[in-house]
Each structure stands twice: as C-alpha cells, then as structure tokens.
Write a protein that binds this DNA or RNA. Structure first.
Lengths: 211, 211, 211, 211
DNA sequence: AATGAATGAGCCTTCATTCAT
DNA sequence: GATGAATGAAGGCTCATTCAT
C-alpha cells in the first residue's frame, strides 16, 4: 500500500516535471517548434521516459491543455458561486479571468493560443466533455439572472463572447508583450464594460450589492 | 509595353493562384502542417515556380497575411469615414468586421489564427508599419468623439478589445464550426453591446443619427 | 526438496507461458516485428520477468527454435525406427512431417520461416550440434537401404531436398493460408512422389511391407 | 522528346541504382536489418532521393520483389514454350530455376526468403495479379500433358511443390552457404527426380525427345 | 522472482530549399 | 519563368535492455 502510493507519487511527480518543461518550451518557441529533445533537456529526463508517460508529443500537449482548462474552470466556479447578484457575477467572470491569467501567464498563453492544436480523437472527446459540463454549470448559474430581468435576453451563443471576449483579447495582446499593464491592473475597466453590455435594459432588478 | 504588361498580368495571376492555394491549405490543416508540396499540388504548379515567386514558405504566409490585413483595414476605413456619429462609428466597427468575416471566411480565419506566424524581420517591420498607420487613422477618427464625451475616456489599450473583442471571439468560434449563425446574422447584438460599453456615462452628447 | 521442485515447476510454467506467448506473437506479426512488450502483454507478465528467464529477445527466439527442432526430430526418429523397408521409411519421413505440421501449425511455421533468425554464437553452436546429430542418425538409418539398392545413390546433399522439399513447400503455402487442404490430408500424394523419386532404378529389392 | 526521354532514362537509372544497392544490403544483413542509410551509402545518393523515387523502405522492397518475380517468370515462360514433350517441360522447370538461381544469386535469395515481407495493400494486389497470371499460363501449358496421360493427375496444389520444392530447398541451402555445389551443377539429379515423380504411372505416352 | 519506470541509441521519414536543365 | 529531381538536416518515435525497489 505504502509502496504503491510511493510509486504513484513518483510517477505523478515525473509527469508533472515533464508537463512543466513542456509548457515552458511551448511558451518560448511554440508547440510546433518545440522538439521532444527540448522537453527532455528541460525536464532533465530521457526521451523514453517522456514516451513512457505520455505516448506522444500530442499526448503531452493534450494533457497540458485539458489540465489547464480544468484548473481555470474550477477556479471560476469557486469564485462564481460566492456571487449573489448578477452584476457581481458578471464582473467576477472578468476579474477572475484577469487575475488567473496574470498569475498563470504561461498556462494562460498556452490555452489562449492552442486553438489549432491537433489532438487525438480521444483527447478531443475528453475536452468536449469537460467543456460542455463547465458551460452547463455556468449557464445554470446565470439562468435565474436572465429570468428575472437582471441580465439581457440574448442569443445564447453571444453571452460568453460579450462578457469574456474583451478581456481575452486584452490578455492575448498582453501575453504577446504588446501591452504593458497586466490584465489584473485593468480588470475593473473590462468588468464595467461587460456589465454595461449585459445588464438588463431597464436596469438590474436585483438590489445593488453593498460595497 | 503590351508584352510587359501581359507578362506582369501572367505573373500576378500565377502569384494569386499560389496564394489562393496556400490559403486553402492553411485553412484545411494549418500553416505548420501545410507543406510546399501541398501548395504545389493545390496550385497545380511546380516547386520551383513557388520559390521563384515567393522565395520561401514564410514569404507566402507573410504576403498572404499582410495583403489580408490591408484589405480588411481598407474596408473598415471606407465604411468608417462615412459615419457621422460615435454610435454609428462604433457599431460600424462591429458590423463591418462581421460582414467581412462572413464574406471572407478563409482569409479571416487565417488572420485570426496566425498570431504565432514566424515572419522575417522585414515582413514584421512591414506589418507593424501597416498596423501602426491603421491604428493611428482609426484613433484619429474616434478622437473627437472621446473628446466631446460621446464616448468614454478609458485606458487607450482597452478600446479595441472592448469594441472588437466580442465579435472576434464569436467569429473565432464560428470559423471553428462551433457556432451556426454567421457573424453577419448576429452583428446587431454585438454592435449594441459594444455601444453600451463605450458610450459616454451620461449618454451620448451627439444627436442620434436619423435611421 | 518438495519446495525446490515446486519452485522449478513454477519456473518452468512461467517460461512455458512466455514461450507460448512469444510463438503466438511471432506467428501473428513475425519475429522482427514482435516487441518485448507484445510478449509481455500476451504472457501477462512483466518485462523484468522475461529478462530474468531468457536474458534477451534473441534468447527467447533461440530457445523456442531449438526446442521446436528437437521435438520435431525426436518425433521423426520415433516413427522412423519402426520402419522395416526403404519405402516405408521414405514415406514415413513425409507423412510424419505432414502430421506434425498439421498438429503444430504455429511452431511449424516458426521453424519453417526463421532461417534469418539472428542467434547468439552459443545458440548457433547448440543448434548445429543438434542438427548434425539428427542428420547423422537419419543417414545411418537409411545407409543400408542405399547400400542394398533399394534407394538410389545420389549426391549426399540432394536426399533431403528430394524427399522433404515438396511437402515442406506445400506446408509453407498452407501455413500462409494459400492452400486449403492440410498437409495431413494430402500426405499420401507427397509420400508416393518422394518414393517414386528415391526408389532404386530397377525397383526396390526389398519386399513390399504388408499393409 | 529527347529531353523527356533523357530525363526518364536518368530517373530509371537512378531507380535502378537504388534497387541494386538495396538488394546488396538486403543480401548482406537482411531486409529488417538494412537501414535507409545503408542503402543511401551504397547507392551513393541522398536520403531524399530514395524517398522521392520509392516513397518508403517498403516501397523499395516491394518493387524489387515484384520486378524479380517478373524476371524469373518471364525467363521460365521463354524456356518452357520451346518444350515439346512433358518430360522436357518438367525438367525445364527444374533446370531453368537452377540456372537462374545460379546466375542471380542475390535476387534469388531475396525472392526465396522474403515470404514475410510486409507490403502495402497495393503492392500485394499487384503481386497477386502477377502471380495468378503466371500460374495460369503455366497450367495452361501443362494441361495437355496431364490430359493425355503423359503426366499424373494429382491434386492441383501439389504439382508445383512436387516439381519445384526439391530444387528450391536445395537452392535455399546453397544460398545460405550450407551446400557447395551450385544448383546448376546438380540440376540433372533434381530434374530426373521431378520427372520420376510426375510421369504418368504407365509411362509417358508421348515419344521420348531425341537427345 | 517480479515489477515497471527509466534509458538512449538509432531508425524511418519529412520537408524546406537548391539548382541544373 | 518553369520544372522537378536532388539534397540533407532534423524530428518524432521505437524498443531492447537495465536496474532500483
């Protein structure tokens, strides 16, 4: 029992070590330009070890992607479920993302720029499952606010782009070194903009949160 | 004279043929995954011909990118300069983009997903010049509206993300096949959202455009 | 004593399990294409266990080969020493092979197609010893029949090809799935053909065996 | 016209040069053990050139195999169609093979030991077509001799093994360095043996060829 | 004896680019 | 301008083998 968990822990540590190395390389030169040898050197392990744990370069990229998405999603849900008003919730989507991106630059950049990532059918399936479940939870959370007029009724596919699109675009530029202020620094502007675009036409029907 | 222009026309046609083929391939499998041989096959020409006209794979990608950006920018400026009010102008940024993306799917997708494109120093320089000039023109156009309170005063780097971020995010999903309605179909929603987020806090001071 | 023999039996069982797995893999995809991991999976044991028992991949292949040859040879000698006439003996070489191949498809195929097998010097030595001894025994058995004119006097290296070549060729095709009738089914034809080619020019001088 | 045929000739020469190199390497160390780099070194060309002409290592092996089979088959048919009696024809199958193997050691060895060669579906198809056509021609040639009683009536799949099996087995051993006399040297023995096994039970009904 | 993670040399193949015709 | 054979560096991946537990 002890033995097995030790082994498992060691395995997990090695995998984590490789994922960290991969993220670092992907950030430096991009996924395509990163070679297994780059990762091997950076993770200080053998080629075989990488393949023993991940099976392929794509396997590394996929696992990194899915794990990153799950962390980001989980962090959002934690923050979101504490919100009591629509305004607070909408702004939290923006500020949470700003803070997370600022704290997790490399991983955020990876998630933001890997839309073209070629994944195995299996990995795609898993990612879709993860994403669908997350989207459902988020929409279930916001549904009441839309129902009571605090938020506008819009085509369902437009909510996320309107709320998250601006801060994501800003983050993309910041991560590319084109902007100097971190997302965390300008988050209030984007939170306000998102709420302006989302709040019910006649103003929110729920009471403004104190503070 | 006639001979030369004929030759030039033929050359232009061949270049255009290759660029079209390249865009098609890039759209299908991505830039990195596209090989010169893919382009050769698709353009129905020889390897040597491609190198004669573009010098390198990166040369094709760069020319395609810069030409695309210029077309998109020019189209925006044409539409924008017809606008007399801040509201009309802001909404035009959104609707023009929606329409252009819908009409130029492949090229739009290429521009939207080639942030990682490795370009020669020369090409990068050229692209920056083109972009800087465009951004300057756009900001000069909007400056009066900000000055007279019709639009909010915000950190300069936040304007573009707030106005264009949502429709770009939507376009990205649509181009990826995740959304069904074209940007052109939902542009009004995004135009309205952009204006809600950008209009002066006390309401626009300029008169509403008739119509 | 009991303990030791139990251990030995267990060891022998594990070795046998691995050899069976290896033969199965070799038959399916060929020796070269079979990986240690294939065998491991098929034998349901660990990599280390395989190396503990056989030392190398070549060790497995060699042991399997030599063991197979010995079984085949032993079976032939058993059947052969019961024969009293040249005709019976020659035909027995054919029919014994037919029956053995039919009953031991995979092993026979392995022996028949592993001419290229790279073996250690030690294993090669052992195989040669085994083969030389067998050939010597067989030739000593047949010598009297040649001496008394019941069988033809031919160049020594032609006897085995003439007697066994046809049924081996047939077996090769059958094992490859190209022929439908098993060697056992057509053995009489090949036995007759072998005898026709081997019998003394003036007819056999020994009496035809009854039945 | 001249230009094109020159180019074609050059291409054919290069392909031939690579095939020769491959055969040499295959003979020396076996197909599996031969690396592309071995062939490249031996053919004195670049890796890319090999792939330009053959697509893959398997492509080389297949083309070599099919071309070899066709040469062997064509040579047999040429010799066979000159035969007027069953005896001459059966013996020709044996002697032609003996001579061809002796003159084409490497190619013969390649054909004889590549039964396990992994070929593309396309190549397999082509090989089957080639073989089927050859077998049909050969059987059509021999049919009259079986019909008129000059040769025995046997199960159809046994003819080839009985006639060719012995000399093939001998050739295999000789090519492996186990026998010293070339097949051409001992061909008469095998020709006689084949005829003994194949001739009609009551003796040939056609006249013995003079000489 | 058993386990399975780790190793690393080596292989097949790709592909941007060059250049003789 | 066009052609396509030739080049060769480089990369993803395999796999027999080792070894600490």
């Amino acid at each position: 029992m002890v033995r097995r968990s030790t082994v498992r822990a060691a395995t997990a540590a090695r995998k984590s070590q490789i994922l960290d190395a991969a993220l670092s390389c992907f950030t430096d030169v991009g996924i395509e330009a990163t070679t297994i040898d780059d990762i091997r050197r950076c993770a200080d392990c053998s080629t075989g070890s990488i393949y023993h744990h991940f099976g392929s370069k794509e396997g590394i990229a996929s696992e990194l992607f899915i794990e990153g998405v799950q962390r980001l999603n989980a962090d959002l849900m934690t923050k979101l479920t504490r919100c009591r008003t629509a305004e607070r919730a909408v702004k939290t989507v923006v500020t949470q993302y700003s803070d997370w991106v600022t704290r997790n630059r490399d991983l955020a950049g990876y998630l933001l720029n890997s839309r073209d990532l070629a994944m195995s059918a299996e990995a795609v399936e898993m990612l879709h499952d993860v994403n669908r479940a997350h989207i459902r939870r988020v929409f279930e959370f916001f549904a009441p606010f839309v129902g009571n007029g605090a938020m506008q009724i819009l085509p369902v596919e437009t909510y996320i782009p309107i709320i998250s699109g601006p801060i994501q675009d800003y983050a993309r530029h910041w991560l590319a070194g084109q902007f100097t202020d971190s997302p965390a620094k300008v988050k209030a502007v984007f939170a306000e903009a998102a709420w302006s675009a989302m709040k019910g036409a006649d103003g929110p029907r729920d009471a403004k949160e104190p503070g």
